[in-house]
Design a protein around this nucleic acid. Structure first.
Lengths: 102, 102
DNA sequence: ATAATTAGGTTTATAATGTAAACCAATTTA
DNA sequence: TAAATTGGTTTACATTATAAACCTAATTAT
């Protein structure tokens, strides 16, 4: 009985979300319809390289959609959360609560 | 003005605590006076090697005290949170809330 | 008595991750 | 036209996480 309680104590934390920058990106995208590279960079204070890599990972995982297009003549990369991304985020938050006793 | 709000959005996450296993260990120690290696291993389902390494890191950081002694004739490693560890944990939880909108 | 097994770990080697620095192409400004 | 800026990507390095191998002491089986 005790063992059963124990086994549910610490759910594993999705490694894709358990990363400071990727979590920040998802956090922003959850609360907003879309956000472009420049905006995400400002908000997270990440370097371009790091942000580029982490966006790519979230995209590969299917947690966000990335659309590379143009704003006038300049390139513009726009990101949006996916259904899958939202679910993963919610699940991550629930799992994390087990660690924080929230 | 908006910029000021932005700058406080994502507080940086203590890398020592932003690790699944180390966070689990701290989480246990927060709620309990002391816990030995075997208990921590059971609760976290970590391998001995990984647990050993992460305990050492928390200890080096001054977040926990580690006492190597004996239980009868067998060795027994007991861990306890420190004041510094508790403060770091609380700060981490507060910072994390900014990412989860809790 | 000694050989094998278990308990309680630590050390070491490898794989995965995170990050910054260097780079590139296009655009704008001097 | 040269220099600087924008909007990124690629690459190389440092850090981290993890498992596997190892070690010592104690227990159990032969």
């Amino acid at each position: 009985m005790l063992e059963k309680e124990v086994s549910i104590m610490f759910k594993s934390l999705d490694p894709l979300l358990h990363s400071e920058l990727r979590l920040a990106v998802m956090s922003i995208l959850i609360s907003v319809e879309e956000a472009d590279f420049v905006y995400l960079k400002e908000q997270t204070k990440a370097t371009s390289g790091n942000l580029s890599v982490q966006i790519e990972k979230l995209s590969e995982a299917g947690y966000i959609d990335v659309e590379r297009g143009f704003q006038g003549k300049r390139t513009r990369t726009v990101c949006r959360k996916t259904e899958k991304g939202v679910e993963a985020f919610q699940k991550y938050v629930e799992a994390l609560k087990g660690y924080l006793s929230l």
